[in-house]
Computed example of a mutant assay.
Amino acid sequence: MATFDNSFLMNHTCLRIKDPKVSIPFYTEKFGMKLIATFPFADFTLYMLNYETEANKHLNWSAREGVLELCHNHGVENDPNYKLNNGNGEKDRGFGHICVSVDNIQTFQDQLLKQDVKFQKKLSDGRQKNIAFALDPNGYWIELIENGIAKAEDKTDASTYKLNHTMIRVKDPKKSLDFYRDVLGFKLLSTSVHENAKFTLYFLGYDHDSNFKQDTLTREEQFKREGIIELTHNWGTESDSEFKGYHNGNSTENGALQGYGHTCVSCKDPAKFCQELVDKFGDKLDWSLKWDQGNIKNIAFIRDPDGYSIEILGHGLFEDKFKQQANL
């Protein structure tokens, strides 16, 4: 049996980017994140961003929740034909968005508009007046919601911001819920059913309180958290023989474009966890990279029922490099 101690957390979400000189300032200057680590490799560089707080600033990057990993493949910034898939087009849909919760959503939206940030949906658009969707330089959607932390009129403070969740579309919610709960140890935090539009949202994350009852978290509590995954189920896909599934963000089959990369689970002993999964599930799991077998050591990648990748790593990965960069 896999054992889930209180070290388990959802560490990061990875998105590919075209030009770090554009994307990094967007997230640091406009969204208030901090670039906490940069890891260069031969063909690509990883940029780790986070809402750094007094509570997490002493932790290694991989021991934190709410990290955004931007992956830059060297040279694509000079390729006029290089394009990324934001996951929301008619073709190759899958990944939907990342979500940032803020203290005062109206003030934050107004601030972004003054900085010429483009929006897919403003607060005043459509029926839902309490959410907005900004667009990053690569066309990825960023949902905005309000957590109300220390909310002040006509003010917004980046110290209250959270990288709240990552949304992916799933074909069969039963299979996906079983995977995220039984294999990865997530808890179902809440469910939101939208009968008129015929879709259901499932929010999952780690909760290590033994008294926590699944599917009971209020919106107010949920909006104050980080490290949540939102599974969107459009009704009927699970029984539609014509439905071909969602794009996982990584495949290039049939001319598909890449974009979204993966989410990531971190814990203190990932080698033990991976072995426990092998012992429990055998060949029933879809490993794209088994533990410690890739060019980058001490990581693994597993795929969920829809083919989305989840990285598994430890709290100490690249800690020496991180400390050097952070001057710790």
Rank of each mutant, 00 (worst) to 15 (best):
5 D>L: 06
10 M>T: 05
11 N>P: 05
11 N>D: 14
20 P>C: 09
20 P>F: 03
21 K>A: 15
22 V>I: 13
23 S>K: 08
26 F>W: 05
27 Y>P: 04
32 G>A: 07
36 I>E: 02
37 A>T: 09
38 T>A: 06
39 F>L: 13
39 F>D: 09
41 F>R: 12
41 F>K: 14
48 M>A: 03
51 Y>F: 12
54 E>C: 08
54 E>H: 06
56 N>V: 03
61 W>Q: 11
62 S>I: 03
64 R>T: 04
66 G>M: 08
67 V>I: 13
70 L>S: 01
78 N>D: 13
83 K>W: 06
90 E>S: 06
93 R>C: 12
102 V>M: 03
103 D>F: 00
105 I>T: 03
109 Q>M: 06
109 Q>H: 07
110 D>G: 10
112 L>W: 01
112 L>R: 01
113 L>V: 12
115 Q>M: 15
116 D>R: 14
127 R>A: 07
128 Q>A: 12
135 L>A: 02
136 D>N: 08
138 N>S: 08
142 I>S: 00
143 E>Q: 07
144 L>H: 01
158 A>R: 11
159 S>Y: 13
164 N>W: 01
165 H>C: 02
166 T>Q: 04
170 V>N: 00
171 K>T: 11
172 D>I: 02
175 K>I: 07
179 F>E: 08
181 R>C: 04
182 D>I: 04
187 K>T: 08
190 S>G: 03
196 N>T: 12
196 N>C: 05
196 N>G: 13
197 A>M: 15
198 K>F: 02
201 L>E: 10
202 Y>K: 07
203 F>V: 10
207 D>R: 09
213 K>H: 13
218 T>S: 15
222 Q>H: 10
233 H>L: 08
235 W>G: 03
243 F>R: 08
247 H>A: 01
248 N>H: 05
249 G>Q: 04
252 T>V: 06
254 N>R: 14
255 G>A: 11
255 G>P: 09
257 L>A: 09
260 Y>T: 07
268 K>W: 03
270 P>G: 02
271 A>L: 07
273 F>P: 06
277 L>T: 01
284 K>R: 14
284 K>W: 08
285 L>T: 05
292 D>P: 09
293 Q>S: 11
295 N>R: 09
296 I>V: 15
298 N>K: 12
303 R>S: 06
308 Y>N: 04
308 Y>H: 03
309 S>K: 08
312 I>M: 04
313 L>T: 07
316 G>I: 02
326 A>N: 14
328 L>D: 05
